[in-house]
């Protein structure tokens, strides 16, 4: 046995599947473009709906009925200006649309390679397995966080164009200056990014486990929905707060006069634990896995 000084035709593992290359692979996919389109169109549709409904129905009162959490208050304030419109759009999207989009980006990334059979050719290059996951995760998370950022930012602009740039109003009463409102919006976006880490980790794990992209995306979405359903059963207290989606809406705490960090800290901690476990499982499984697809 001896140390080899083989150049392998200028092959270097640390240069394989660079982030730029993976970005091109993903960005040129139709589903990425569709997701972006949905995110761009949604705020416009919501704004138009508000515009139309406020013209036909000027009373607009009531709205106190039970419904989606936080909904009524945020709905009533949605047309006050850019900030509140962005907040409402975020609220409307965070429960399902953003979950699906993040699940799509992170769940589809490995499983779709497996389903096209291109995974084995990447591994035969060879892209080291851990590196393959890392590069794919960097790109998938970038796209997910990008979606999380794009939606409120775009909704802010759309809201400003439709309803003006009035200062933000807290559902608890009181108003924010534009600077303070943007700061709160940033906190909201940062927290939803952290929350979407859970969906990302879960979808990524499923993506490694299965060769069917639909299974990974749908599975992650389904588990989030199941967690939401269980979370609505108050009889499950005190175990409910360990459900991964329990603190999903804790960013609402950033909308009062004083920001209350407690639940956001809990939510962040919980998500980080779940995500770490899911990511560790994904890596471990992928290292061991026989690639048969």
């Amino acid at each position: 046995m001896q140390l080899a000084e083989v150049q392998d035709n200028r092959f270097r593992p640390e240069r394989t599947l660079r982030v730029r290359v993976e970005f091109v692979r993903q960005l040129r996919r139709r589903r990425t473009q569709l997701a972006a389109l949905v995110l761009l169109v949604l705020p416009v549709i919501i704004a138009l709906a508000f515009k139309v409904s406020s013209e036909t129905d000027s009373s607009g009162g009531g709205g106190g009925g039970p419904g989606r959490p936080g909904g009524p208050a945020l709905v009533n304030l949605a047309t006050t200006g850019a900030t509140n419109f962005a907040l409402f759009t975020e609220f409307a999207a965070v429960g399902f649309l953003l979950v699906v989009i993040v699940a799509l980006f992170c769940g589809d990334t490995v499983a779709s390679e497996a389903s096209w059979a291109s995974l084995r050719y990447l591994l035969a290059i060879p892209v080291p397995r851990a590196r393959l996951l890392r590069q794919k995760l960097i790109v998938a998370l970038s796209l997910s966080f990008g979606a999380n950022l794009l939606l409120p930012a775009w909704a802010y602009l759309v809201g400003g164009a439709f309803f003006g740039w009035a200062p933000g109003q807290s559902p608890l009463g009181g108003t924010f200056t534009t600077g303070a409102a943007l700061q709160r919006l940033l906190i909201v976006v940062a927290y939803t990014c952290v929350q979407s880490l859970l969906v990302a980790a879960l979808a990524f794990l499923l993506s490694v486990l299965t060769d069917a992209p639909l299974g990974a995306v749908g599975g992650a979405t389904m588990l989030v929905v199941v967690s939401n359903i269980l979370d609505s059963i108050t009889a499950l207290d005190p175990y409910r707060r360990f459900l991964p989606t329990h603190f999903q809406y804790s960013w609402l705490d950033a909308l009062g006069q004083n920001i209350i960090w407690d639940d956001m800290m809990r939510g962040t901690g919980l998500i980080l634990v779940y995500s770490a476990v899911f990511f560790a499982l994904a890596w471990w499984r992928f290292q061991e896995k026989d690639i048969l697809s």
């Binding site: 083989v6 392998d8 035709n9 084995r120 591994l123 035969a124 290059i125 060879p126 080291p128 397995r129």
Partner: peptide, 18 residues
Amino acid sequence: AGAPVLSRIGSFIEGPGL
């Protein structure tokens, strides 16, 4: 898995992966 010497092999295994 991932042995660098694999870079010296060109492969076509069980159908195309495009």
